[in-house]
Structure formats: structure tokens, C-alpha cells
Amino acid sequence: MRSQVRWKLCWENELQLGDHVELTEFFRKTYGPTGVFNAQPFEGSRSWAGARPELRAIAYDSNGVAAHMGCLRRFIKVDGVDLLVAELGLYGVRPDLEGLGIAHSIRFMIPTLQELGVPFAFGTVRHALQKHIERFGRHSQLTVLSGIRVRSTLPDARLDKPPIRIEDALVIVLTLARSMSDWPTGNFIDRNGPEL
């Protein structure tokens, strides 16, 4: 049985305080089971973990927020080559809806990504999500890259931690205005900021 959801696209400045509070609760419940540390950034009305998105796709059902995807246009460097992308992140599906196909309905966001005038959408996910992402990508122009190190800054400068983090995550590339052959070759991506 698929849950009936309606997707809404919201620019960040369109969200009200109540929207942020509702999203914060959604992220704590969605990310909490993957580790307490993953839910920590979502305190009070903070509905983002690292970089703040400029555009959000939010799915609602009769129980509130059902799913979420954030988007932020930025330049990254792939082995030193500047590349404009729409970074995708803050992805989540409410735990009671996992496995019902909600994630596939995020495809409605592709026309909006194309309107943003970026050649690629880009994101990173942990290796545990590889099969999920590959299933999702079967019917789209999505490529999963492994063996790539990604450097990001921490969201906040702290005295007890280095200012950057380098991780070996799966890199997701969705072609929008160019083909995958135009994606620069390389095994190091510099995000030049905190991840979304």
C-alpha cells in the first residue's frame, strides 16, 4: 500500500517558524534511529544540519511531514575543476513510510532542478544506502560513483575539531543539462563549504 502524499516546493524564505519546527521534529525522528549524533543538529527550530538549503521539496500526508529533500546551488571542485551543481541533501522519509515508494515520487523535482540552470545535481550518501539509491536511479539519469573522497567544512568553527572533514562517501550525480561524459574525472571533490 502506497501512502498518499502531496509534494510542495518551498524556497527557504517562504518557510514560517512553524514549518521549521515541524521539519526539525521530522528530522530528529528520521535521523535519530541512524545514530544520536545524526539527530543532534536539529534542536529547537533548526531544520538544517550543515549548509542551509535554498529550496526544499517537502512531502506531506495526513500525519504531517512524510519526506524531504533539500537543494542548494553551489560551485564544487572536482580535482581542481570548478563545477556548478545543485547539491541535494537533507533527504529523509518518515520511518513508518519506508519501503512504500515515497522516494520515487521525488522525481517531480527534476523539472525544477532543470529550471535552476545547473548542469548537474550532486549529493553524497553513506555506503549503507547504495542499493536504495541504485534502485531509485534505475529510471533516471542518476549515476553512483564510489572511491571518491569529499572534503567539506564543518558547519561551525570549533576549538575541539579540525575545520574540515574528508570522507569516503558515495557520490550521486544526476545529469540535468549536460551528459555524464561532461562530469570531470577525478577522485577528490572539494565542496567548499559544509554539506547540505
Rank of each mutant, 00 (worst) to 15 (best):
V93G: 00
G117Q: 15
E98N: 05
R151I: 02
R46L: 11
A121I: 05
L116G: 00
R149C: 08
E134R: 15
T153D: 08
Y60S: 05
V171W: 02
E43R: 14
R165K: 10
S62F: 07
N38I: 05
P41F: 02
T112A: 15
A57W: 04
V125I: 15
V93T: 10
K161D: 08
C71L: 12
A66Q: 09
P163G: 03
V150H: 03
V173S: 08
I148T: 01
V173A: 02
T143I: 07
G117D: 10
L84V: 12
P53D: 02
F42M: 10
A67V: 01
V93C: 03
D96T: 03
A39K: 07
A169H: 13
C71M: 15
G50Q: 09
A103C: 06
H139F: 06
L113Y: 10
S105D: 08
P95A: 02
G147D: 04
G70L: 05
D168W: 04
G80P: 06
V118R: 11
P119A: 01
M69K: 04
K161P: 04
I102C: 10
G50S: 11
D82Q: 10
Q114D: 09
Q114E: 13
R138D: 02
R126E: 11
R158A: 07
D79M: 00
R46H: 14
R151N: 06
V144C: 01
A51K: 04
Q141A: 14
L154F: 04
